[in-house]
Simulated assay, not measured.
Amino acid sequence: MSSSIDLSVPTALMLIDNQSAFTDPSHWGASRSNPLYEVNLQSLLSAFRAARASSSTLLEVVHIFHSSDSPASPLHPSHPDGGIRPLDFATPASDDSEPIFWKNVNSSFIGTNLESHLRQKGIRQIIVAGLTTDHCVSTTVRMAANLGVVDRSLDDGPLLFRPDGSRENEIRVERGRIILVSDATATFSKAGFDAETIHKVSVASLDGEFADVFGTEEVVKALRKVENPDIA
């Protein structure tokens, strides 16, 4: 993991499934990891919005929400508790400056225009937070890395393979960056495993292979330096 966060490149804060359905213990269970998730995500979003207002570089907040196909899910549009609505601390900006994408599967890139949006904007770095660590957050991070949505190809044409698996050509790529904010995401216990174990294993599985992992404090500090470059 790189020891610093560079916000001089076009960056998107991707907030996944911060919806009120996840406060329903009757569906998900009462045992959830990371009790500071709400506080940390709110701090992250506030700092990013403040940095965006001060930056000459593109900094964009992107909200991804889930609309389930299952009528039994608290994330189904017809659910009487209105579980698909955003959590109060993660509500999109009222001026429509923060794009919203709706999905119905774990990946934020399936059935949405998110990939094309990030490419059109020239986003070179994404910072990911939200719910849940082992499902939609993990799937989205993995797919972002596999799609190379923050990478930039330096050569034309796809990578071509011969029948034996050897390559016909090489593709030069300038790598972008995916950052996972580990303490601004959370999950629930399942299959006899406690929530903290599932959360930690999920983060560890992503770290290095698919994303660089940072804590909220580190990301917020980098964002505050955008506002005030003199901060040590």
Rank of each mutant, 00 (worst) to 15 (best):
M1S: 14
D6G: 04
L7I: 12
T11F: 04
L13N: 08
I16F: 00
I16H: 00
F22K: 00
S26M: 04
H27C: 06
G29D: 03
A30M: 10
A30V: 14
S33P: 00
P35G: 08
Y37S: 06
S43Y: 02
A47R: 11
A50E: 11
A51G: 03
A53L: 12
S54H: 09
E60G: 01
V62L: 06
H63M: 02
F65N: 06
H66I: 10
H66P: 01
S67L: 14
S68T: 00
D69N: 03
A72G: 14
P74W: 01
L75P: 00
P77I: 05
P77Y: 03
S78P: 00
H79W: 04
R85S: 13
R85Y: 09
P86W: 07
P86C: 09
F89N: 02
A90L: 09
T91Y: 02
D95S: 10
D95C: 08
D96F: 14
E98F: 07
I100A: 09
N106R: 11
S107A: 00
I110R: 13
I110F: 15
G111R: 05
T112S: 07
L114N: 01
E115F: 03
H117G: 06
L118Q: 11
G122C: 09
G122N: 05
R124N: 01
I127E: 04
A129M: 11
L131W: 04
T132W: 06
T133A: 15
C136G: 10
C136N: 07
C136R: 09
S138F: 10
T139M: 10
V141F: 00
V141I: 08
A144L: 10
A145R: 15
N146C: 04
N146E: 13
N146F: 06
V150G: 11
D156F: 15
L159Q: 10
R162D: 11
G165E: 05
S166T: 13
E168W: 10
E168A: 12
I171D: 07
V173F: 05
E174W: 02
E174C: 05
R175S: 12
T185F: 01
A186W: 13
S189D: 11
A191E: 14
G192V: 03
G192Q: 01
T197W: 10
V203K: 07
A204D: 13
E209A: 13
F210W: 02
A211V: 08
V213S: 03
F214S: 00
G215F: 05
G215I: 09
E218F: 07
V219H: 08
L223F: 01
L223M: 07
N228L: 12
